[in-house]
Design a protein around this nucleic acid. Structure first.
Lengths: 343, 343
DNA sequence: GCCGTCTGCTTAACCGGTTCAGTTTTCTGT
DNA sequence: ACAGAAAACTGAACCGGTTAAGCAGACGGC
């Protein structure tokens, strides 16, 4: 494995410049204590030598940061790759981190116990300066664990149940009201909401808003059923719903994967979309535009969401105040999967 | 941000046990130099204190490792989330790393220049002990860069063009021959291969095998067209192909995303799948099972691929010999998108 | 009884940075 | 010209581990 030459250290620079280690450190970090002339010489030498600061050495110094943050994704591995959400989130987080030279540690776990173990280990071993936590749950045990650890964290979700941590959330309730009004305006009376797992805070928010909005719109039979975001769950749930008499005329899915699965089931059962059934997906992705008919979807700017999360975590690591921020909610993009009955 | 207590260090353990730092280190690392009795006492104290080794400190010691490896994914962010390949690969890599307490750094870049910059930075700053590189290209500049850096690497792809690095590859040519024979056996004569980017080594292998197998099967009109794995490319390419007279009766796509896009186009153009057009996707995923008709696909065990890559990288980091390994090739899973013409 | 070896532990150096406390040099004012 | 202050730089400690070298005491052999 090539590269025989030793990595240059500030000591090498010091020798070449004929000054002490300390002077080099001041020069490289743009701090006072060296003349501009000397600073220039040192920077030039550092550049020539191809020097870069050793991240472990920096981290070890008193008050030093490791320059990395962590993200744990706790979803079954096989369903995972399909949700563009995570990769977009990662992409957004990194856009923000890139400018400050911070890296991202990613861990995929199968359950929350493993997720919590990861936070404990990262904190104890000083692997990261902080973490971004997704999918906030009701009475989330992670909040307590992280709170008593020396581990800054930003939650994606809330604001309910996020205290005392900083959090970032979208107005899911508002978006859901928009969806219900839209479907009601198209004439739909029997709408079912295929929700995510019941324990998620955002699931609660969506379900609550869905039922409220439905009642206000005078839809008697509206209800939410819980599923787990996987394609299989979408398939089974949809099959069950469409097999009832007085079957729903519109379905709202909490993610795109279940919506695509639902579309497949409708096709299989001979239920035409959209003339006999309207479908709305939460979280837009190429997937929604790729299938036929293309799916009406709520599109959030997940990349910005990730960027903002990274920004907030950075501030939290630096010791800033605990903020609770709301980002703009998703917009509804009507496509071919929704329409009036019988059209 | 809670956690006020200082992290325990081996010095704390040493004081509590009434021995020196060195003795604690020997005890904790299972090395000779301490009595079994003392070792037991030290381990107990370490456990009580909730001690874990500081990763930066370990890395800084002469010959120390940082305990992390890196993976750069160089694809346009929006197309990315959809390919289950990467998340499955990550999942596989981590399965293997978990046992040894090694972490994964993930970076998403927009072009190869940024990818190379990431390797340089990781190596110079000592962020990782090694990297896994995907999508090997013809005359890949990354190979030279990594080779002359102090940065162990394992390539996914090859074995052509991988020298002098260790690599891991699948028999794409064999899998492609199987696909062509299968389609030929169904009676297809006009088959087009919608390939990935021309510069990838595995694209070359597949294209070469496709043309060879087609010629052997006596199919005159077989050809490959290059695309870039995105849904848009799949859409455009398919639209163009289906608009020709004497349009192909079977299409083989180099990834699942383009295949799904192609299916959508066929639907849109009123070309029935599979009676008028057969579709085969490379790389199976839930996506292929979700759409209607479900897609015939080549399924590789990507998780194992990732595990093996991590294993090889670990061996390379430890200074093992340069290995070139082949993993079992993908299997063909016939589903509803392929069949004899007019059936 | 004395030498040599082994065991069990300590001491100290080292990794590559940061930073504080001094020390020397240069600048400023009168 | 010279005191005093500011600027430029040095030396050493520190972060938390690992490890080579040194050393005291026990044990065995002859």
């Amino acid at each position: 494995m090539g590269g025989l030459m030793r990595r240059p250290t500030i000591m090498d620079i010091a020798k070449a410049a004929g000054v002490s280690k300390g002077a080099v450190s001041y020069a490289l970090n743009g701090r006072p204590g060296v003349s501009e002339q000397t600073r220039g010489r040192i920077l030039a030498i550092a550049h020539d030598l191809g020097w870069a600061p050793s991240s472990p050495a920096r981290a070890l110094s008193p008050g030093g940061r490791v320059g990395a943050i962590g993200l744990v994704v706790d979803r079954p591995a096989h369903s995972l790759g399909l949700e563009p959400f995570f990769m977009q989130l990662v992409s957004g987080i990194e856009t923000e981190l890139a400018s400050s030279g911070v890296d991202l540690l990613l861990q995929v776990t199968e359950d929350m116990g493993a997720e919590i173990a990861a936070y404990r280990r990262w904190s104890a071993e000083r692997r990261v300066d902080g973490v971004v936590m997704v999918d906030l749950r009701v009475d989330d045990p992670r909040v307590r664990v992280v709170e008593e650890l020396p581990l800054p964290a930003v939650l994606l979700g809330g604001p309910e149940g996020a205290d005392p941590l900083p959090c970032l959330y979208t107005d899911d309730a508002g978006a859901m009201r928009e969806v219900v009004h839209y479907l009601a305006a198209l004439g739909h009376r029997r709408i079912v909401h295929v929700a995510g797992p019941e324990e998620f805070v955002h699931t609660r928010a969506r379900v609550g808003a869905f039922l409220d909005a439905a009642e206000q719109a005078g839809l008697g039979e509206a209800r939410s059923v819980y599923a787990d975001y996987t394609g299989e769950a979408g398939t089974k749930t949809t099959r069950r719903l469409l097999a009832t008499q007085d079957r729903p005329t519109a379905l709202v899915y909490d993610n795109d994967l279940m919506a695509v699965a639902g579309l497949g089931v409708a096709h299989e059962m001979g239920v035409d979309v959209p003339s006999q059934l309207s479908i709305v997906a939460w979280d837009d992705s190429v997937l929604c535009r790729l299938v036929r008919p293309s799916l009406t979807a709520i599109a959030r700017d997940v990349v910005s969401y990730g960027r903002m999360a990274a920004l907030m975590l950075g501030a939290t690591i630096k010791g800033g105040p605990v903020e609770k921020r709301e980002v703009s909610r998703g917009e509804l993009y009507p496509r071919a999967s929704t329409g009036p009955l019988g059209a």
